[in-house]
Structures are given as structure tokens and as C-alpha cells.
Design a protein around this nucleic acid. Structure first.
Lengths: 339, 339
DNA sequence: CCCATATGGTCAATATATGTCCACCCAAGA
DNA sequence: TCTTGGGTGGACATATATTGACCATATGGG
């Protein structure tokens, strides 16, 4: 027998639309609280007046609170919101898209959050939350988690919550530093995740891109060697996927390499490997830390990236990704990936 | 699935109604097809025009066909109808019973969870969860909650979840200690609820049943006086309903009183008052704490009790209960209460 | 041929939703 | 202290939907 929701889709699609609208409001409020009508209406793309109608309704149902510095969710609103997320996926058919996407990319699982990271900063928070919650379900006894950098990963770190019954966690950076922005470095993110989960971490203070000589001497350094050891023994890898050109610029790649990448139509980057649309590695920077080949032996690989702008990068990388990858992305990217 | 309904009730309160209406139409059409608007409207008790609106809708969803000799179900309409039949029975069943029960008992609202507490321990957990979630929706700003004891209340405490942004809560025991079992004392339960919601609580360390002298001296004691004050100013009361004889035994009532209760056919107990089937107070133990009369002025009164064994007690107490009571019970008790 | 029963169109009345504007409150910053 | 920007909430005209009422018309059977 098909589910309640399936039947509802046929018998009351009009109401489900309303439900969708209210869900979007609740979700957005939870992201931005406290928030005023104007900004909310702007983001949700509805006129202020109609938003106001809905807000009045939600207020009457005591799902949101509104006082003189804006609206915020009530406890029961928060609860309703969290119960709704699953249903909305089913209503919007996201659950089906998740399955299709996982199948198409040949990976274990895909998780899709609504929205488009490129357009709404807050969707990145959702990616973070979803990832954090997935991680939680992966933790189990002793875990070593190798983490890469990037702004998305930074959001994941922010979304992690200290949990009473946390297992024994160790966070290690999967690689050295990239570019100038300290906040998005693997090292920094690692530390933040560890702090938020009350657990241990290691740092890898080496430049991300190294010459061969340096590489050889560094991997002999005991402190570095130890961390590298821990990276290889990680049972969870959490990484982002970058747009090739953006990453190259962030790495301050020299002009000739940049031209090479462009010439070969590089679209994606992960772990220092650059991929073209076919998923072929067309360039690789010598990095200290986790290598693409290391992924195969790792229990859980979690990739996070969203936004239409990253769709190509995701597609490219996924041709190479180990089958046990879980991808967390947003609706916009997912739709593009599914063509 | 039932959670979908629960959520829908909050986010789209009239979802069920609309669904019911459309279901009725489909069902009626299937019985009379081909049928015209006029006769259909007559039978369903709606005006022709509004029926027409629904019919247009159903036609668009291609659930019904309409041609010049009337309406009939399409294949997919037939299928949807058959899927809905089971659901509607279940949903509407409980929904209607809740309303009937509330009406019959003359209280604000009744909430019914499936099952029978007497037979399945787990149903008590459901009672607890449902109650906890109701409480959540009642919290709003500053709240003082007076709580009684009992094994059911203990389950409610267990079901309460620590929540990030809880309102400002204070839990106070509605009464002193009863019997030996520490876990089911109002004091203990209060403390547990406060702990689980990260909020404050008070304790009332006095015996539940007191003689007159003791009563007089105790209510002068400042620490006790203060708590009593807080009890009276509670805006939410959360209480159980007991079986008279069981409660009397738990209180180690003396033989003569016990005989008195039996003689007068006591069936229910709440707040130290014993009721017969007619809801008359036939005995009352002098207790420190909340009194039956205090309930009238309190904003929300939540009563929780389930199991066939408690049906009589519930019925008896409800004759006396304030109209603003919300009863949370199980299906077995509800059915018995509805005769 | 007419009647009963069917759908579909139309249009005014009415209810509801929406756009627009404004009053006011409060907190941060000049 | 004043201003400003962000917030809520009230008011009201106007658009848009819903509903009620009535009629045109098709069709099949007596």
C-alpha cells in the first residue's frame, strides 16, 4: 500500500503546496532567527503581505514567536520543522531523486537538501547540518576522521553539536594549508570540530603544495610522520569538492599550470587532483596528506558540495570516487547532475 | 504515517477536513456512478456549487470522469479510493473519537494514543511522548508546571527532551510523597522533568497525608509556604488519575477508611480526592499541595491516564474536572469511556 | 415531443487574500 | 540626544476566489 503522502499528492496537491510554503518559512526562520518580515520575504521570494498572512497563521498555531525584534521558532515549531523535513523530501520527491542520484553517480548514497547554495548562503548551513547529523550516525566507538578545508567544511564544523554520548573521536586534517583564508583551512576546521565535539585533534603544519625535496624531508619529520600515519588510518573521510579554476587560483598556481588546466578543461578538484569532465586526472599537485588512492580502503567517505556552480565539479570527481562515498549536496546541483 | 497527520494538524489544520470531503465524494461517486451533481450534492449535504468546485478539481486530477450522463470514477480514482479507505478509517476514527470523547467528558480536548496500557507497557511510553509533546506546545515564556506522581507521570518525564531554547520553566510538585516507591513521587518526577528540560524545580518534602495539627504547623514553615505559593500560581497542571482502591492501598490507608471507600463504591482518585462513579467526592485525605478547587483558575490542566482498568476512574474524575482539561489516554480506555 | 436528468456557462454577491501606506517601537550609532 | 534602520501591527482599498443562483443545452426514454 502506498503511503499517506503518495495519496495526498493525488487527492490534495493544493494543500501540499501550502504545506511546502509554510515549511519553507519555518525553515528559513530557523536559519535566520530573529528575522523580520522584509528580509524574510525577500529571501523566500514572496511579497511581504502574503508572507505576513502566513506568519499570522503560524503565530496562531504557536509555531513561531514574534516580538519586537523579529520572528523566531518556538519549541514546538522547532519540533514540527524537524519532523517535516523528512516528509517534505517525500512530498517533493527528493527521496526519489536521492536514490536516482546515488545510482547515477555509482555511490552508496546521496543526500539532498532543498535550495541552491549559490543563491542562498543559508543553504550552506543546511548542508552543514545535514552532514553533521550524518557524521553523528557514523560515529561508533573509536573514530579517526580526516577532514579537508573549504568554506563548506567550515559550515559543517559550525553545525556540529556537542553530544552527551560521543564516541572516542580524533580529527585530523587531510592536508596542509591552502591559500590565505585561515578559517577555511583543514587545520582550523579540524580544531573547531574537535572543540565542538569535545574531542581530540591533530594539526599538520605544512604547506599544502610542496616541492619534491621538501616532500621527502618533511615526511621524515617525526611529528609530521605521526600525523600522516593517523591520516592513513582514518576510518572516516570528510571532504569537499572544488571548482578547478577557483581552487587553482586559491592555491596561487603559476600561470603555466593554470593554462594547462584550462587547456585540458579541468572542472573539478579534490585532494589536490584536478579532473576534466570525463573524470580523468589531468593534473595533480604534490601534496602532503591524504591521496586519492587512499580513499579506497576507508570505511566511510563523505563528500559535501552544493550549488549549480559545483555541479560539473561534482560530476567529474564522482567518476573517480570510491563506491562507498556518501554525497551531500543541494537540490540545485542535484537537478543539474540528474540532467 | 501518523506523524504526518500530527504535523499536518499543526501546519494545515484543515487538511483532514478537505481530505475527508474529497474522500466522501469519491466514495459516493463510486457507489452511485454514473451520478449527477444534484443528487450527489443532496446526499452529501453540500450545496451544488461547492460540490461543483470539488468535482472540477477531482476531474483535473483525473480521479473522476465526467460526461453527459454523469460522473464516474476513473481507474486511478478507483485505486486512490481503495487506498484511502483504510487510511480514512484509521485517521478519522481516532480523530472523531477524540472529539467525541472531549465532548462527552465536557473537556477541552482529548488525545488518544493507539493500544492498551494494561496490556502493553510500551503504550505507556506513547502516552508519555504524546504528553511531552503537548506540553511543549503549551510552553510559552514563563511557565510554572505543577506535577503529580504516578508511574504514568514518570513516563512523561522520561519522554521530555532537552531542547536548546526552552522557555523559562519551573516545575513544582503538586503534592508531597505517597507510598514507598521513590521513582514515582511527584518530587522525583519534578526533578527529572526539570533536569531533562534544563530548568528549575522545587521540592516539597512533606508527607502526602497529614493530620490537621501537622497541616497547620507545616503550612507556616517558610520553605513549605513558598513552594505552596508557587503551586497555587502554576499556570499548567499535569496530573494522573488513579484507581481508588489501588491508591488507597498505596497510601496505606487504614482499614476503616478502606472499608468506607469500598462501601461507597469509590472508583477514582485525583489530588487526594476519592470519587464514586457519579463523580461525587466521597472521601478526601487532607493533603498539602494542590486542591481540586484550585484547578478552576489554572490555565492548562493536563490529565494523563490509560488502560481499561482506569476507564472508570477517568470517567468518575472527569465529572468533576474543569472544562479546560486536556485528557491524554489510550484507545482502550477511550473506547470504554465512549461505551 | 417532452420531461427528467445531466453538464457547463455566466454573473453578481460575498468572502478572502493581497498591495500599500503609515504609525509606532526599539536599539545602535553618530 | 537625536537619527536611522530594522522591526511589528493596524487600516483600508483593491484584486482575486468562492459561492449562490439561474439558465442554456444535450440526451435518452416514455
Amino acid at each position: 500500500m502506498s503511503s499517506f503522502i503518495e495519496v495526498s499528492k493525488k487527492v490534495l496537491p493544493d494543500l501540499l503546496e501550502v504545506m511546502q510554503k509554510r515549511y519553507d518559512i519555518l525553515r528559513q526562520v530557523s536559519q535566520m532567527e530573529p528575522v523580520g518580515r522584509r528580509s524574510l520575504a525577500g529571501i523566500l521570494g514572496m511579497t511581504e503581505r502574503v508572507l505576513r498572512g502566513e506568519v499570522d497563521f503560524l503565530k496562531n498555531q504557536s509555531l513561531i514567536n514574534v516580538d519586537n525584534n523579529g520572528m523566531s521558532l518556538t519549541e514546538s515549531g522547532r519540533q514540527v520543522l524537524s519532523e517535516m523535513t523528512g516528509m517534505m523530501k517525500e512530498i517533493k520527491g527528493i527521496d526519489i531523486k536521492e536514490r536516482l542520484l546515488a545510482e547515477k553517480l555509482g555511490i552508496q548514497k546521496a543526500i539532498i537538501v532543498p535550495g541552491n547554495t549559490d543563491e542562498q548562503e543559508s543553504v550552506k548551513n543546511d548542508l552543514g547540518k545535514e552532514t553533521a547529523s550524518l557524521m553523528l550516525s557514523l560515529f561508533n566507538g573509536k573514530n579517526t576522521i580526516a577532514v579537508t578545508g573549504g568554506s563548506t567544511m567550515a559550515k559543517v564544523a559550525e553545525a556540529m553539536i556537542p553530544h552527551h554520548l560521543l564516541s572516542d573521536l580524533l580529527f585530523v586534517p587531510a592536508r596542509g594549508g591552502v591559500g590565505a583564508d585561515l578559517n577555511n583551512q583543514a587545520n582550523t576546521i579540524c580544531a573547531k570540530m574537535a572543540e565542538r565535539t569535545n574531542s581530540a585533534y591533530r594539526t599538520l603544519y605544512v604547506p599544502d603544495v610542496v616541492g619534491n625535496d621538501m616532500y621527502q624531508s618533511m615526511i621524515k619529520e617525526p611529528s609530521i610522520k605521526e600525523v600522516l600515519q593517523q591520516i592513513k588510518s582514518a576510518n572516516i573521510v570528510l571532504h569537499g569538492i572544488g571548482d578547478a579554476i577557483t581552487m587553482a587560483k586559491r592555491r596561487e598556481t603559476n600561470e603555466s599550470d593554470l593554462q594547462k588546466l584550462k587547456g585540458a578543461c579541468a572542472v573539478g578538484e579534490a585532494f589536490g587532483y584536478y579532473f576534466n569532465e570525463a573524470g580523468e586526472v589531468i593534473h595533480r599537485v604534490q601534496t602532503i596528506g591524504l591521496q586519492l588512492d587512499d580513499l579506497e580502503g576507508i570505511q566511510h567517505v563523505v563528500a559535501v558540495a552544493g550549488g549549480i556552480s559545483k555541479a560539473k565539479a561534482i560530476a567529474a570527481y564522482m567518476k573517480r570516487a570510491p563506491k562507498n562515498t556518501v554525497l551531500i549536496t543541494d537540490e540545485a546541483a542535484a537537478l543539474k547532475l540528474l540532467k
